[in-house]
Structure formats: C-alpha cells, structure tokens
Design a protein around this nucleic acid. Structure first.
Lengths: 148, 148
DNA sequence: GCAAAGAACTTGCAAACGCAAGTTCTTTCT
DNA sequence: AGAAAGAACTTGCGTTTGCAAGTTCTTTGC
C-alpha cells in the first residue's frame, strides 16, 4: 500500500512534467503565452465575476502573491487583464480578465485540448478517461479553484 | 471526448502542483533537499550503474543540461554525488550517486512516501490505486527514465 | 475610539532555470 | 588522414520565482 502511494505520486509528478514540457513549447510559439499565464486566465474565467484578488489567485495557482503581481503587470500592458479596485476594501486589487483575454484564452484552450488529445489518444479509452477524471477530481476535492 | 482530454490534463497538472507544493516545504525543512534534487538522486539510483551522463539526466528530468550542471556542483560539494570521467568518450561527465547520497535518498523517500500517504489516504482505495498506477504507467510508457 | 494586530499588495534581493554561445572531444564524409 | 559536422558540457545573460521587509488599509481588543 505504501509502495502504491509512492509509485502513484511519482508517476503523477512525472506525467505532469511531461505534459507541461509539451505545452510550454507549443504555447509560447503559437500564442506568446506561458503555461502559467494560460492558467491565470483560466482561473479568472472560471469565476462568476471573471475576477479574483491577487492572494486568492495565488492560492489557487499554488504560487506566491508576488509572482501574481509580477505576472499581472505585463498582462495588463497587453490588455489580457485589467486591474480593478474594490470599494469595500481598499487593500484588494482584483485581476479581471478582459474580452481580449477571453478571446486569447479560447485560442489557447484549443491548443491545450489538441495537445491533451495527443497525450491521451490511443493510451486510454473513454471508460478509463472517465475513471481517471473521477479519481483526480477526488484528489483535488478540497481544492478551492478546482479546474474542470 | 475532447472535453475529457482537457479536463483530465487540467486536473492532472493541478494535482501535481499540489503534491509538489506539499513536498517542497517538507523536503527542504527536513532534509535540506529540494524536490528536484530528490528526483535527481532517484533517477541515478534507478540505473544499474548508479550513474548517468548530464544530458541523459537532463532528458529524464525534463530540464536543461545547464540546470543539471548547476544542480550537480553543490551536490558534489556536500558529497551526495560524484563526478566521474568516462574513458570511452572524454566528453561525458557522469553524475554518480554516492553512498551518502543513497542514504540521504532513503531518508527523503520515507518523507515522500509519508506525504504521498496523506494525499491518497481515504480518497482512493487499493483497487483504484492499482488502476491509477496502471493508467499513469501507460501515459509514461514512452518515457526513458520512468520512475516507479 | 484608539492602539495593536493582521491582511493585501509591492519591491528588494537571491536562488533556480533556460537559451545561446563557447570549448573540447568524437564521428562522419570525402 | 584531414576537415566539417555534431555531441557533451560549461558559462554568460536574462527571465521567473519565492521570501522577507515595507506600505497601506482593515479588523480586533481593550
């Protein structure tokens, strides 16, 4: 049982690394976007108001708040996100996804889906994919910004 | 089907990020080791001769060769690995895991296993863990340095 | 209601990393 | 055999990231 825990954790991390390596080349070449920038947009899009505070975004992305600050600035400059103040609490600075950001996200998501297809294709059938999704969903059940 | 690909890839990446975040705190605190250094030792240990060239290590770890160089140097200084020349091809510089490295690896592996236990415990039963291992193994079937 | 504690954000600094160029050695081609 | 091509490694440089300290604002406790 212990061995099963270990080997699953190892394989999960290794698989993720391979997927990420695959994506990062394709993403920067095709969309001029890093994988992390893609995820930032994704997290924003999946909220009702299309916005998140920087600390909330940091928590969901498992990165530091300062990294969010430093990622958001250039993305504002090219119009993918906006900075939005919050009247109820002047400390908060929301990151809002713009329409241009949403369009870019759709383009990037297509690439993501295509690459994901290459990875899973011929290796897992539909029943297995459903099972995998179920199990991974359970592993992230306590997560705030669970992506689907 | 496309959606299944996407959601599985997303969840896999997200789960891996959470595991990695969990590990990196524990690892550096308990063993003075980064997650990547742990993986470097692990890859070396899993070879017959307990050694790999820097480019081979880079490929298996999905990092650049220069990063391997820069990781290996401090690890040599503290005696976890050694540098070994190769008579048959003077360009190669093997990274060899030392006995101290193996001992450190065992300590770190115990921590890894413990943390992996926290993650999977009560979320997946043994049959599911076997199934997950099988599927992840298939996803990394083309990988050279597959970890188990 | 005011002082202390705490939260959100930014910035300085250092560590980790990749890319591209440079060096040394090997293989290939003629 | 000798030159050109290529492989393995290192190093310079820029980018990305986290931590800790600093600033501004809000909440808590007396």
């Amino acid at each position: 049982m212990e061995n099963l825990y270990t080997s699953n954790a190892l394989r999960l991390l290794q698989t993720a690394d391979e997927i990420k390596a695959r994506l990062s080349g394709e993403f920067s070449a095709v969309h001029g976007l890093s994988v992390n920038e893609f995820f930032l947009l994704l997290h924003l899009e999946q909220t009702a108001a299309h916005r998140l505070s920087r600390v909330e975004l940091a928590k969901r992305m498992q990165i530091s708040a300062s990294t969010v600050t430093r990622m958001a600035t250039p993305m504002e400059k090219i119009g993918l996100v906006d900075r939005q103040a919050y009247q109820k609490d002047a400390r908060l600075a929301f990151v809002v996804i713009t329409d241009a950001g949403l369009r870019k996200l759709e383009e990037a998501r297509a690439t993501f889906t295509k690459q994901a297809g290459y990875i899973f294709n011929n290796l897992l059938d539909e029943a297995e994919l459903n099972q995998l999704s179920l199990m991974l969903g359970r592993l992230t059940s306590g997560t705030v910004g669970r992506l689907s």
